[in-house]
């Protein structure tokens, strides 16, 4: 506990306490937008750790993961409720979190800790078309692009590295990272060079008899 406070205090002193704002907008190679894209800031300086007891939720609704992409800070506990009246069997083989969880009707398993940064790809062994992502980031400064392809982050002024991530982006991840010094109101506009991977969002377009098993 003492160590945690020491880190927090040193973090506060190392960054200016003056609030600053970063506005990010992203265009794809064909000038469209990619809502849900994860935007986050890391820093060479220590950043505030995850709040004790922080939890998030990845639900199963109408045989889909909801949200499609969930962003959490490293150390967050994630619950997997099941809003459907049928069984799901959620799994991941991603290095950031390998697990499987059977979700029965009226059964509420304990939340799982996500302690390693990275992209966690989720599937369901009952409904093979289900696909979802959990982005675990080692920072409290994260957000997702809205339907206009824009997002804002209110952070203490300072030097950061801006990261942009989405499972459909084919551009080299490192090429999208950029150092930013944020003071006052900073704006960053980005454009992808590579076309997006097919979204296959049409898989979420289904009726009550889709996925005959």
């Amino acid at each position: 506990m003492i160590l945690r406070y020491a880190i927090l205090i040193s973090a506060l002193f190392s960054l200016s306490l003056q609030a600053a704002r970063l506005d990010v907008s992203l265009k794809t190679s064909d000038d469209s937008v990619l809502p849900g894209t994860v935007v986050y800031l890391t820093s060479a300086q220590p950043l505030p750790p995850v709040a004790e007891g922080a939890t998030a939720e990845m639900d199963q609704v109408n045989k889909q993961f909801k949200p499609h992409i969930l962003v959490v800070q490293k150390g967050t506990q994630i619950r997997f409720p099941n809003s459907d009246s049928i069984q799901h069997h959620v799994y991941s083989f991603s290095p950031a979190k390998t697990f499987e969880l059977k979700l029965y009707k009226d059964h509420h398993p304990a939340p799982l800790p996500f302690d390693k940064a990275g992209q966690v790809e989720l599937g369901c062994n009952v409904h093979d078309w289900m696909l979802g992502y959990i982005m675990v980031v080692d920072t409290p400064y994260f957000t997702q692009l809205n339907k206009q392809g824009q997002a804002s982050l209110d952070v203490p002024a300072g030097d950061y590295t801006l990261h942009i991530r989405h499972p459909r982006i084919q551009d080299d991840a490192a090429s999208l990272d950029q150092a930013v010094t944020i003071k006052g109101n900073q704006q960053v506009q980005l454009r992808l060079k590579q076309p997006l991977l097919p979204g296959a969002d049409d898989f979420e377009d289904q009726d009550e008899f889709s996925g005959y098993e």
Binding site: D128, W129, L197, P198, A200, D202
Partner: peptide, 10 residues
Amino acid sequence: PGRQRHSPWS
């Protein structure tokens, strides 16, 4: 399953 291959075809 197609979705895991980013393909519409399964």
